[in-house]
Amino acid sequence: MTAIHPSAIVDPKAQLDSSVQVGPYSVIGPHVRIGAGTRVGPHVVIEGHTSIGCDNQFFQFSSIGAAPQDKKWSGEPTRLEIGDRNTIREFCTFNTGTVQDAGVTRLGNDNWISAYVHLAHDCQVGSNTIFSNNAQLAGHVHIGDWVILSGFANVHQFCQIGAHAFVGMSTSLTQDVPPFVLLSGNPAAAHGVNIEGLKRRGFSRAQIDGIRSAYKLIYRSNLTLEEAKAALFEEEMASPEAAEQIRAMREFLNGATRGIVR
């Protein structure tokens, strides 16, 4: 039998694996699915059309799958999808998507989400990220794998942050952030490459050197953005060891919709 505390309220239509644990006074809605090994702490509300994978842990007082904070939302059955092995700490708020976008908010696998984090409607968050206390995402934000948001960082709607970027404490982002970039401040400014993070994740010296060269082309060479894209293509051809990483930066620039922090 699923380990459900007697004071918890679980709708009979909810689909919970037999190994799921639900703590005191938590509420699980009818359209919720929760996979094996997930633990839901006390005083957690999980509602909406929410799908949760395996081996997640939800700490107390979080609101998961509530309606989007969007005045255009008219009760459409939009969704929230959470992957596997995520840690969601106290007082987090994750909303479902809207039909104005993909209709789904997503959180990938192996993320560490600290207290008071907000994922607004239609956010797409990758895997292996770390969000420190009070990091806040507005609607339609896309976050790549291995991104770190420091405490009180906040991200404007529709912004994109590339993989392995590092955002400093209390940074306010209103533009896109290319992969591998370290930035902070208000307004935000780039301060180099997230070298320490890349070393910890096993990037080679050649790969890091290639990323640094690409960063200099974007930020230190007085090139226009179009000139930087062309220079990145040449750098990619000349640096086979780092070609994948340089290509990722170039393709990010091509897909940036709000301009980049520069």
Score class of each variant (00 low, 15 high):
residue 3 A to D: 15
residue 7 S to N: 14
residue 8 A to L: 07
residue 9 I to G: 04
residue 9 I to Y: 15
residue 12 P to H: 06
residue 13 K to M: 13
residue 13 K to A: 13
residue 14 A to G: 08
residue 15 Q to I: 02
residue 16 L to R: 10
residue 16 L to V: 06
residue 21 Q to E: 10
residue 21 Q to D: 01
residue 26 S to F: 12
residue 28 I to A: 07
residue 28 I to F: 12
residue 30 P to Q: 09
residue 30 P to G: 03
residue 31 H to C: 04
residue 33 R to H: 12
residue 35 G to Q: 11
residue 36 A to V: 00
residue 39 R to I: 01
residue 41 G to Y: 13
residue 41 G to T: 10
residue 42 P to L: 03
residue 50 T to Q: 08
residue 54 C to V: 00
residue 56 N to S: 04
residue 59 F to S: 01
residue 62 S to W: 15
residue 64 I to K: 09
residue 65 G to I: 05
residue 66 A to H: 12
residue 67 A to D: 08
residue 69 Q to M: 11
residue 70 D to F: 09
residue 70 D to H: 02
residue 70 D to G: 00
residue 72 K to G: 10
residue 73 W to F: 15
residue 75 G to Y: 13
residue 76 E to C: 07
residue 77 P to G: 02
residue 79 R to P: 05
residue 81 E to L: 07
residue 81 E to W: 11
residue 82 I to W: 05
residue 83 G to C: 05
residue 88 I to M: 12
residue 92 C to Q: 08
residue 96 T to G: 10
residue 97 G to E: 04
residue 102 A to W: 10
residue 104 V to S: 05
residue 112 W to T: 01
residue 118 H to W: 11
residue 119 L to V: 02
residue 120 A to N: 04
residue 127 S to R: 11
residue 128 N to G: 02
residue 128 N to K: 07
residue 130 I to E: 00
residue 135 A to G: 05
residue 135 A to F: 09
residue 136 Q to T: 03
residue 138 A to Y: 03
residue 139 G to I: 09
residue 141 V to F: 13
residue 142 H to K: 11
residue 144 G to F: 08
residue 145 D to I: 00
residue 145 D to T: 03
residue 149 L to Q: 10
residue 150 S to N: 08
residue 150 S to E: 10
residue 151 G to R: 14
residue 153 A to K: 12
residue 154 N to S: 11
residue 155 V to I: 15
residue 165 A to C: 09
residue 170 S to M: 14
residue 171 T to C: 14
residue 174 T to L: 01
residue 175 Q to P: 07
residue 177 V to T: 05
residue 177 V to E: 07
residue 180 F to D: 02
residue 180 F to K: 01
residue 180 F to R: 03
residue 181 V to D: 07
residue 183 L to P: 06
residue 184 S to L: 12
residue 186 N to Y: 08
residue 188 A to D: 04
residue 188 A to C: 08
residue 189 A to N: 06
residue 190 A to H: 04
residue 190 A to C: 09
residue 192 G to A: 04
residue 193 V to S: 02
residue 195 I to R: 14
residue 196 E to I: 12
residue 197 G to P: 14
residue 197 G to W: 15
residue 203 F to V: 00
residue 203 F to N: 01
residue 205 R to K: 14
residue 210 G to S: 03
residue 211 I to P: 02
residue 215 Y to I: 06
residue 216 K to Y: 11
residue 216 K to W: 13
residue 218 I to T: 01
residue 222 N to P: 10
residue 224 T to K: 14
residue 226 E to C: 02
residue 229 K to N: 10
residue 229 K to C: 06
residue 231 A to P: 09
residue 233 F to N: 01
residue 234 E to N: 11
residue 236 E to A: 10
residue 239 S to V: 04
residue 241 E to G: 08
residue 246 I to H: 03
residue 249 M to C: 05
residue 254 N to W: 12
residue 258 R to G: 01
residue 258 R to C: 01
residue 258 R to T: 00
